[in-house]
Amino acid sequence: MIKKLLLLLAFVGVATYLIVGVQTETSNEAFTAPIKIAMSTTPLSSPLIIAQELSLFDKHKVHVELLPVRGGHRSFTMMSNGEVDLATSSESVVMFNSFLRQDFTVLASFVESDNDLKLITLKSASITEAKLLEGKNVGMVESSASEFFIYAYMILTGNKQVKFNRVFMDASELGPALLSGRVDAISIWEPLGYQLNKEYGDQISQFQTRGIYNLSFNLVAQKASLENSMESYVRVLAAIDEAQSYIADNPKRAKSIVSDFLHIPVTELEWGWSDYLFRLSLSNVLLSNLQTQARWAIATGSVVDTKGMPDFRLLIDGRALEQAGGLVTDL
């Protein structure tokens, strides 16, 4: 009778395995070479931070080194200099650089925000409307979202004709420049806007700019590295995808991890958190955004020595995202 019972159990086991087990995919590939990512120290980089802190890169069998840098434009520079494999940059940075070089490619967009950039003035300057910026000094980071944002705002609010002086500087210098009166207004991204607000809230005022501009943060790689590192990039994207699911399911814990990593209080993080849309995608939205900005850049002369409009389709490569199981639409 025991033999019969063992046979039955074996039968049940095999049947269960055939039904359930076959569905489970196994991945036993060896770790690949380390991937260096120059990561902008902004909450927009949260998916990367979470993936790193929860060892999701390890889980997806890819060794990743995160190198924190101030701003996506710097990150892009490091990538193009070959210091790192991947950069996290806004589409504005991509757009500006596309006029200079064609040796990079956008792998995926991993976060969007419709309220990441802020236009801030000193209360004492009494600049209550956009048209009052006429002849004023406006601080911004050259060839970045900061630059495009102020122009987009002026155009959308029908103040295109208002002439102001562009004062380019580093992101970290924008706040002190405004407070010291060197500039009358600044176009600045978070969390710098929040920090300024928190410390000097009584001295500054902020324009209502939500929905004016949609910022996206993208993972950018050198085209040349694509063939050799495609497998690793796929794994990086898969880890980011899992990190984003974690953020959606455990927002509180995710915020705490990011706050610890960036050394900023959770309250500061909360400030812009609801503006973030964490999702891996690569669609015509990005293409549209890049083209819009490029057209503006050409029209306003923000870029010089151009050979005309770049073909952004050549600067976007959806293969890695597709393999990672993310969203790639209309490309």
Binding site: E112, K160, T292, L327
Partner: peptide, 21 residues
């Protein structure tokens, strides 16, 4: 693109595309 209508049009398109996505 440097006109409000052009910029708005671009924004509308982007937003609608994003919504469809």
């Amino acid at each position: 693109i440097t006109s409000p209508a052009g910029m708005l049009s671009a924004r509308y398109n982007m937003t609608i595309q994003s919504m469809n996505e």
